[in-house]
């Protein structure tokens, strides 16, 4: 475990313009580490969707990426309002995003399903009023 690489980022909640910076950095780091482009793409898309979600819905949070020999793990943790019905949130097209967010090109209800599609495992734990934690893994 001590050989695992860990990247940690604060995701600012009030700044849509800078949302996605952590994902861009992770993509760069994974490229430098020499990972296969398809693996990098899946991790980047899943993390970027998650990062955008944290900014849109949760007022920011913390993103952590752990690189081990067997997998790349993305942990997204926020102290936002929580997800009321995870099953419903996982349905393609379901969204609670505002019109403002939609006018910015997001909030189509594709984020969570796309995160699941691009990763091998995804676990969501969420408590109303406390926050949400999402753990995704892409196996190597």
């Amino acid at each position: 475990m001590s050989d695992n690489l860990i990247f940690r980022f604060e995701v600012l909640g009030n700044d849509f313009t800078s949302a996605g910076q952590a994902s861009v950095q992770v993509k760069k780091n994974l490229r430098q580490l020499g990972f296969d482009s398809e693996i990098i793409r899946r991790v980047s898309i899943a993390m970027y969707e998650g990062e955008i979600n944290m900014v849109i819905h949760a007022g920011g949070g913390v993103a952590e990426v752990i690189v081990s020999e067997e997998y790349i793990e993305i942990i997204l943790e926020d102290t936002g309002p929580g997800i009321k019905d995870i099953e419903q949130a996982m349905q393609a097209g379901y969204s609670t995003a505002s019109d403002t967010i939609r006018s910015l090109g997001f909030g189509a209800g594709m984020g969570l399903p796309n995160m699941k599609k691009n990763t091998d495992t995804m676990e969501i734990t969420s408590t109303i009023g406390v926050g949400t934690r999402i753990v995704m893994r892409v196996l190597l």
Binding site: S37, L104, F106, P113, N114
Partner: peptide
Amino acid sequence: LMSDVLAFAKDQAVLLTGLVNTQVVRT
């Protein structure tokens, strides 16, 4: 709609869009 680009586009593609913000570049 960047959500759809992220969900459906293929790589090595060109993105044509009328949406203008930094997330277009990150997408």
